[in-house]
Design a protein around this nucleic acid. Structure first.
Lengths: 246, 246
DNA sequence: CGCAGTTTTGATGGACCTCAAAGACCGTGG
DNA sequence: CCACGGTCTTTGAGGTCCATCAAAACTGCG
């Protein structure tokens, strides 16, 4: 299902070992975590958790992407987070997920049984400290996204999303963000719309617009080429230099 | 400036002692905090911090309300948080504020010198643990707001904001949210617009609409009466029962 | 009273949503 | 190999909600 292999018996081979919630742990702590952890995999599109579900675990995303969504009764939904490798799922001290969690791509997560994890948190400040760091980063991302949702035009929203996805993809493969970047969209038009607070038709139209303007090239539905990243970034409405957390 | 008085020499008289970042601290820890803290006050409208400013402190809101805002170069701004008494300003390990912080009402904050506060955090898990709790709560609030910004109509946005403000006000004065609630809007129409991702004209029109529909009554610009809170909540688009964090 | 800041109200246009249908892509099975 | 259906995407036409521009009304204050 997932391409990248790693030895689930050995955290030293784990691809997210340096950024996950366990990244500050010493080997004794890792050993304790090891005794309460297990892996789960999901195929693209599968649901990991429904809003209101009881959670018996918290988890780290190891491979793939998951989405966090909130819905209204009438069917409107808003994605409130994209969880990438090393991101954390769940909240210590809470039993039910307030959000729907869905595997956007094929997904592997590293689960920790909740009760013992919470007990460990009290004893090992390393975990709590790292979780605080990660939560503060997520809060910054959420606020960045509030600006996008509240004030950006559809055009700027699409450009912003593409910029983020392209940059992330480049980082993932340790490439320097260069001209002629190529990557595969992990999101359907509908998922993009849910994330951006738009309809899928508007997303499609804006994508076509960017294509016609020569700012992006599309190959099939998913493959995107960005001949000039600066040109795309100029469409985001953002300051050229600063910002762009996430 | 602020009505409620408390003895700044004695944390036992502090109105936010049970909810602030210091709420889990024992008396020895409070004493340490006491040695690195000082108070500041601002009048309504004054700026506390500009985005990019160097911060020599972190702080707790004691009295009044502050706003966190993000701006784009062309002048568009989006409020990304409303800080109420007990809420925390600043981030350990970061030197510059990424947001504008403005006193919405007259405001008093309890500042801790950043360097020693960060050192204390490493030693006293009580502080870090409470800050983690508070940050997770803020993250939930931010995500709730993302749903509002991305998917709610202007009408629903206004109803949601009024519901939240009314409920908070009732809590603050330990009243049970009842029919015939009366409170003063702490926000100008422009601030409401910035928070809701609307223009001030749209805010004004929607307020007039709710008034004409008899769902709210307005006295002067700021005083709001809500004869039937359930009727207002029915306009928010939310599930009647759950949700409504914050 | 007169002035500045805030709020309300009006008129207009445009960005985006809604409804609708056709087209592209992909796996399955004949 | 191609036909077929299902899913995802594109494109079109029309309508609506909200932003924009503009001006008047209200509030508080010297």
């Amino acid at each position: 299902m997932n391409k990248i292999a790693f030895d689930t018996k050995n955290c030293g081979t784990c691809p997210i070992q340096h950024r996950a919630v366990c990244s500050h742990c010493d080997s004794a702590e890792l050993q304790m975590l090891d005794s309460i952890k297990y892996y789960r995999s999901y195929e693209a599109g599968q649901s990991v958790l429904w809003a209101g579900d009881h959670m018996e675990f918290v988890a780290s995303v190891v491979l793939g992407i998951a989405s966090l969504s909130q819905g209204m009764e009438d069917g409107r939904t808003q994605m409130v987070g994209l969880l990438l490798p090393s991101d954390f799922i769940g909240r210590p001290g809470r039993n039910a997920s307030p959000y729907d969690v869905v595997a956007v791509t094929d997904l592997t997560i590293c689960c920790f049984r909740k009760k013992p994890f919470e007990e460990m948190m009290l004893k090992t400040p390393h975990i709590a400290a790292r979780l605080l760091e990660m939560t503060l980063d997520e809060l910054d991302s959420a606020r960045e996204w509030m600006l996008l949702l509240g004030r950006k035009t559809a055009h700027e929203k699409i450009a912003s999303l593409l910029t983020i996805l392209a940059t992330r993809d480049a980082n993932l493969y340790k490439k320097i963000p260069l001209d002629g970047m190529v990557f595969d969209l992990p999101l359907t038009r509908e998922a993009m719309a849910d994330y951006l607070g738009l309809t899928l038709e508007t997303v499609s139209r804006q994508m076509s617009g960017l294509k016609k303007a020569g700012i992006i090239q599309l190959e099939g539905k998913r493959r995107v080429t960005i001949p000039d990243i600066a040109r795309l970034m100029a469409e985001t409405g953002d300051d050229m230099d600063g910002g762009m957390l996430v």
